[in-house]
Design a protein around this nucleic acid. Structure first.
Lengths: 349, 349
DNA sequence: TTGTAAGCGTTATCAG
DNA sequence: CTGATAACGCTTACAA
């Protein structure tokens, strides 16, 4: 791909120095006389020299590329994080290699292999649920990595995330405090998704602490999509007695749920309360009284980049970072519901 | 980064063949005896061999990586395309290198250089507005590329896109046909963004064809954000006489505009009509009567991947592909407005 | 079909 | 501070 393009030796010749010196002038400017550095820089500029990354990687054993393995970019949540990740990496001259797996563990393994093969100096993963083979590969290739979105309870893997279970507990408690007793949950698919499982567990924990159980039919598990959320909401509202509060495990599902409520003429909140996770800006507009958990997507991306860059530079790094999640109570889902058993309330996330 | 990891020579030794044969067995299975191929495969599997991408790229002059240079991932529109692009590439063993520039042409040039440096075998760009230096670099390095989202009128650059101007014309005509005469436009920033300029020109064209002009104050130019859209809408509705129809150049702005209408108690459509571009699923929920232009984001990503893969494989490729854009008329923004000058109508996109 | 050997364009080591 | 020179791990003529 570099056919005909100027190479380092061309730059060196033009500057009247050896390739070695040219290399140094370009990558470690401090190690050459200012004057020769100027000559080399000038020659490089004149020739439009662009270093050959593969050659450089081969010789230096560093690719200056960081990989990210994510479920999908369709979820705005991950797109935001990836955007921040890429931006932060670029500031340090690193390029992002992107792989997604659509929640398929086999694909994930494959994608990871691919990134390692391309020489990723480090890799970012989402969540803690990964094939043991993945961790084995990372160890074999001594590839630094970090898990984001979740906290690793085992402490075996470096992670930057937040307490998904606790966030769900807080959201649920909020609903309980509003007086709700009949709950429904619109969940994402739990397979290969620790975030969903933790959040679900959090809802259960909070309810149990107040002597309530979540019956199997009170939980609807669906893939992330507006349509799923709509349909799930319809099902839940069809149950008798119908829930007065519904917790949505993800914002996409929440939006679907809200849409369904509007279509069915159900007031949110009022007849129903919704609480949620992730990126709820739009959801909040759909249902102004919405209560949500705001997840630090941008911070996750930035922190992951910083972690890996620091690690690669041999700097000290914290191997366990918990980020705060903010409970955002909008409008007045408040006291009214406390007296009369309110309509359904939904915890969105 | 490959320290301690098995290399091709290890596989070769274990299989009892030369490195050359091992290489062939792995990358061109057809060129070796089935029996030796099996031995090599077995050895590779046993050792957990992962090829060294940089070495391979250096020797073969091909990286099996494709770059994408996009404005941002924060816009769901681009995220969808990138997702499709990455997925299609992965099916053919290609990995995606991602760069974004936040609508900054200097950053874009830099990012492009970075991708070329990393050895991208091909690059996808958004739109036609690019620094001439970018095209020069692409030529120097003989890097295949393709522009998506727009059609290149000059015919100089391969492109896969749709007619942005025509789409805007159709949307505007629709509003005209509904009886609207007083228009407002919420535009994105026109600098370095041919899509916005084309769409804006389309609105002007359609109006002019019916003897109407768009006064300077009827156009509000803002960066993409919900807040911008809200604010712009407020400004437009403050004008006297106020517009009965508003065209939003992008869905993010549209959502903001709709939010503002709801907050102000303005009915959409009814007091106001909205029409839009890009991903209007949510907008449509916020304003059920919304008319929109549906942009083929997934197809754009897929087609771009296919184009580059075909080109790299030496296959025939169409260098100019126009994709259809669908005008989606929802609800009944219809006849009511035809009689009485309707409230403001907004073309969202 | 397989092996030999010469690169691919940089960086790193080691003298000078 | 600078210059030879040997890797880096793989592919690919060319020969056998």
């Amino acid at each position: 791909m570099n056919r005909g393009a100027p190479k380092l030796s061309d730059v060196a010749r033009m500057a009247g120095v050896s390739p070695a010196t040219a290399s140094r002038a370009l990558s470690t400017p401090g190690r050459v006389r200012p004057e020769t550095r100027a000559r080399v820089d000038h020659a490089a500029r004149l020739l439009g020299y662009v270093p050959h990354g593969a050659a450089r990687a081969l010789a230096s054993q560093r690719s200056r590329m960081i990989g990210a393995v994510i479920p999908t970019l369709d979820n705005a949540i991950f797109a935001n994080s990836v955007n921040a990740l890429q931006g932060t990496l670029a500031e340090s001259g690193y390029t992002l290699l992107l792989g997604s797996h659509a929640y398929n563990p086999v694909t994930e393994l494959q994608v990871t292999r691919e990134l390692i093969e391309r020489g990723a100096d480090g890799i970012v993963f989402v969540g803690t649920d990964h094939d043991p083979q993945i961790y084995r590969m990372l160890a074999t290739f001594r590839t630094p990595y970090v898990l984001i979105w979740s906290l690793d309870p085992s402490g075996r893997h470096p992670c930057i995330g937040f307490n998904n279970r606790d966030a769900a507990i807080r959201v649920t408690r909020h609903l309980l405090d509003l007086g709700h007793r009949r709950f429904g949950v619109i969940s994402g698919l739990t397979a290969h998704n620790d975030r969903v499982r933790e959040r679900l567990a959090g809802v259960r924990d909070a309810l149990r602490a107040r002597g309530l159980e979540l019956s199997p039919q009170a939980v609807v598990e669906r893939p992330y999509s507006f349509a799923s959320g709509q349909q799930a909401m319809r099902e839940l509202m069809g149950r008798r007695p119908s829930p007065t509060a519904v917790v949505c495990i993800n914002d996409v599902l929440a939006i679907g749920a809200i849409i369904e409520c509007r279509a069915a003429g159900i007031d949110v909140p009022g007849d129903v309360s919704i609480t949620g996770f992730d990126d709820m800006e739009i959801s909040a507009q759909l249902a102004p009284g919405l209560t949500t958990m705001r997840v630090p997507t941008v911070e996750l991306g930035r922190a992951a980049a910083t972690y890996l860059l620091d690690r690669l530079a041999g700097r000290e790094v914290a191997t366990f970072t918990e980020l705060p999640v903010e409970l955002v109570v909008r409008g007045s889902t408040g006291s009214p519901q406390l007296e009369s058993p309110p309509g359904p309330q939904h915890a969105v996330r």
